Amino acid sequence: MHFHGYEWAGDGRLLAKESERRPIDRAQFSHSGLPPLMTGWWLLRPAAQVRSTWSTPADAADWLVQRYAEHTPGGDPWLPLSTRRQHALDQLADHSDVVWSRWVSDSRWSGHYMIVCPNRFWTDVPCPAAPWGPAR
């Protein structure tokens, strides 16, 4: 088991383009930079969309903390990063994907996604970066 990190930040109104977020039209879906509607569908995207890959939940959670902190200045007043990190560790150790996303302004959306690979819910989806190398 390993973990692929993905992220997307941009005009949140673009998330309404659901046709680009579903793998119905493979070409359109593969070329879209928008986050898929289902977490496991990230694994259907080209390997170039993988930001990095880790072999441990702790390293994957550390990346989430770093990227989330960079994209959400001031943090989340309801859930401190240390608590958020612990929840991510628990989820990843349980082979569950982790999504941290939020509106960071009136129109800007920021999302960070850690996808377990191979994925227990998307067993027919191959690893997009196989054979995957060391974390970059």
Results as ranks from 00 to 15, higher is better:
residue 16 A to P: 04
residue 130 A to L: 09
residue 10 G to K: 06
residue 67 R to V: 12
residue 16 A to C: 00
residue 1 M to T: 12
residue 37 L to D: 12
residue 118 P to Q: 02
residue 31 H to W: 04
residue 23 P to H: 09
residue 55 S to L: 07
residue 2 H to K: 12
residue 66 Q to K: 15
residue 106 D to F: 09
residue 117 C to S: 15
residue 132 W to R: 15
residue 76 D to E: 06
residue 46 P to Q: 07
residue 31 H to M: 05
residue 31 H to S: 14
residue 63 W to R: 05
residue 35 P to D: 08
residue 33 G to M: 04
residue 86 Q to L: 08
residue 125 V to L: 07
residue 46 P to M: 06
residue 20 E to D: 14
residue 131 P to Y: 09
residue 1 M to R: 12
residue 6 Y to I: 04
residue 88 A to S: 03
residue 2 H to S: 03
residue 9 A to I: 12
residue 65 V to G: 02
residue 33 G to Q: 12
residue 89 L to V: 08
residue 29 F to A: 07
residue 119 N to F: 06
residue 96 S to I: 02
residue 87 H to V: 05
residue 131 P to G: 11
residue 37 L to C: 08
residue 19 S to I: 01
residue 77 P to A: 10
residue 41 W to C: 08
residue 107 S to Q: 13
residue 37 L to S: 15
residue 75 G to E: 09
residue 65 V to F: 03
residue 72 T to H: 15
residue 3 F to Y: 15
residue 78 W to M: 11
residue 16 A to G: 11
residue 124 D to A: 13
residue 19 S to N: 13
residue 97 D to T: 11
residue 60 A to N: 04
residue 79 L to M: 13
residue 12 G to C: 08
residue 85 R to W: 04
residue 134 P to H: 09
residue 83 T to L: 01
residue 56 T to H: 11
residue 32 S to L: 05
residue 117 C to Y: 02
residue 93 A to F: 02
residue 102 R to Y: 03
residue 15 L to M: 12
residue 116 V to Q: 02
residue 70 E to M: 13
residue 11 D to A: 06
residue 132 W to S: 10
residue 106 D to A: 13
residue 46 P to H: 07
residue 64 L to P: 08
residue 7 E to S: 15
residue 33 G to F: 09
residue 119 N to W: 11
residue 107 S to N: 07
residue 110 S to H: 07
residue 69 A to I: 03
residue 90 D to C: 00
residue 22 R to S: 08
residue 116 V to S: 06
residue 82 S to N: 13
residue 97 D to R: 10
residue 132 W to P: 08
residue 125 V to N: 05
residue 6 Y to M: 04
residue 126 P to G: 06
residue 42 W to D: 05
residue 85 R to V: 03
residue 120 R to W: 03
residue 30 S to D: 14
residue 56 T to V: 08
residue 86 Q to A: 10
